[in-house]
Write a protein that binds this DNA or RNA. Structure first.
Lengths: 105, 105
DNA sequence: CTTATTGTTTGACAACAATCCAACTATGCG
DNA sequence: CGCATAGTTGGATTGTTGTCAAACAATAAG
């Protein structure tokens, strides 16, 4: 099991988080993660309407902004929302964004 | 006194609001409006570090996303945050973003 | 009427971003 | 080992964005 580089909680920048979530494809990925929890990249990218390499690019954007966590397990890569970290850094922000996206919090 | 075209409250899109706020210059403008209320474009753009035409471009981006209101009064144009509209459309969103930006709400 | 003030528009330009495709890497399976 | 699966990377393309400068428009003031 390997971890990939992620920004530390205190290094997460507000405008970068907002930027990451301002793309509809990335927002949809985040919504899926919020609804269904940790999942593999393939599952997260299913029926997303973009090429898998494009999805991969979006995973990186979300990871570098501090929105998601990735961990490699064997052949699979699991991604998940950094809910606790985001809530520690920006209390209430993720919840209000998810509510705005009609995701039950 | 003239009003300029703004999106109706129900037409404000989440990703467009996040996009508008993902630029540091626009975020700073919004912070100023949150702290000091309605102000003219010149006041809002003071010491922003960008050319006035660039600031004007940002006002339009914020207006088209539904984040700010503009009204022309004589030679001056006043801009203000659409707090009530944003709160009606996305409850708690603006507050949590402003809190994240260290603006007292 | 002329001038100063306030802000927008247009053009140019460089940087960035979203996308697809093809090639590649890495891991597990038989 | 050889093959399939899961994802990433690099290149190409196309479009968007942030910026400045210069020209413009509209209004108020002298």
């Amino acid at each position: 099991m390997r971890l990939l580089p992620h920004p530390a909680t205190e290094d997460i920048q507000l405008t970068e988080v907002l930027r990451a979530l301002s793309d509809p494809v990335r927002m949809e990925i985040v919504i899926r993660l919020a609804l269904r929890g940790e999942m593999t990249c393939t599952t997260a990218g299913d029926d997303l309407g973009v090429h898998k390499s494009t999805a991969s690019h979006h995973y990186r954007a979300l990871r570098e902004a501090g929105v998601i966590m990735s961990k490699q397990e064997g052949r699979l890569k699991y991604i998940s929302l950094r809910r606790a970290d985001l809530d520690a850094r920006f209390p209430g922000l993720l919840d209000s964004i998810l509510s705005a996206a009609h995701v039950p919090v």
